[in-house]
Design a protein around this nucleic acid. Structure first.
Length: 221
DNA sequence: GCGACAG
DNA sequence: ATCTTGTCGC
């Protein structure tokens, strides 16, 4: 990672450029066969980080391939600048894949971001791959009530603007927060989220697998 | 200015 | 994110 930002000011400038390159949420990719989950784990004290990309068969949700990478964190955690901390190790892991996924699912936000350049937008643009994010908390945003059944949704808003959707992936359990990243529409991202949680867990199978993989990689290597 | 704040 | 065992519940 050569010209990676080192200061917040540099990161903000990079974000502005990424936002300009972000694809205006079109209809999305056709014939998606490979869906990849992305996640990063950190070590308590040190700078060590581990990233994992796990590729699933879109039809069966079985793991097709996975790659991990361990290294040193190159940016601190700053709300709104999470991408600068997570992307370097993720790109390293991506380089280890033999096949290019058709769609990426990130653990965090995309468009639902103070400047509309969350992790899923940033990663999608850099790799030029369809990408969206699924977060576990609403961050700065709000949403109305949604039914208790699996599949219920409510708009996630920032003032008047809809930035994503709260999606109940499991009956009676706290919803997940889906937002668009790059080259995928919100409705489609939500549909993929439900398909990826058909197994009964709150989080997408893709991020569950990636979460486990990067933790293992961190504890071993 | 102060606190809150995806992971 | 991470520090953390057992435990209550379907």
């Amino acid at each position: 990672m050569d010209g990676w930002p080192r200061t917040e000011a540099e990161a903000l400038a990079v974000q502005a450029g990424i936002r300009e390159r972000a694809d205006a949420v079109g209809p999305g990719p056709e014939g998606v066969r490979l869906i990849a989950g992305v996640d990063v784990a950190y070590q308590v004290e040190g700078e060590r980080v581990a990233a994992a990309v796990v590729v699933l068969d879109a039809g069966t949700l079985e793991v097709v391939e996975q790659a991990t990478a361990v290294g040193e964190a190159k940016f601190p955690y700053v709300p709104g600048l999470l991408a600068f901390r997570e992307i370097p190790p993720v790109l390293d892991a991506m380089a280890g894949l033999s096949r290019r996924p058709d769609l990426l699912v990130c653990d965090g936000y995309g468009y639902a971001h103070p400047r509309r350049v969350g992790l899923a937008v940033h990663l999608g643009v850099l790799l030029d791959l369809p990408c969206f994010g699924v977060a576990k908390s609403p961050f700065l945003y709000r949403h109305g009530e949604l039914g208790p059944e699996r599949g219920a949704t409510a708009a996630l808003t920032d003032g008047e603007e809809v930035v994503g959707r709260a999606v109940r992936t499991r009956a009676g359990v706290k919803p997940v927060y889906v937002s668009v990243g790059h080259r995928v529409g919100l409705a489609e991202a939500c549909a993929y989220t439900l398909a990826l949680t058909a197994g009964g867990f709150r989080l997408p199978e893709s991020t569950r697998r990636a979460d486990r993989a990067c933790r293992d990689a961190l504890s071993r290597g």
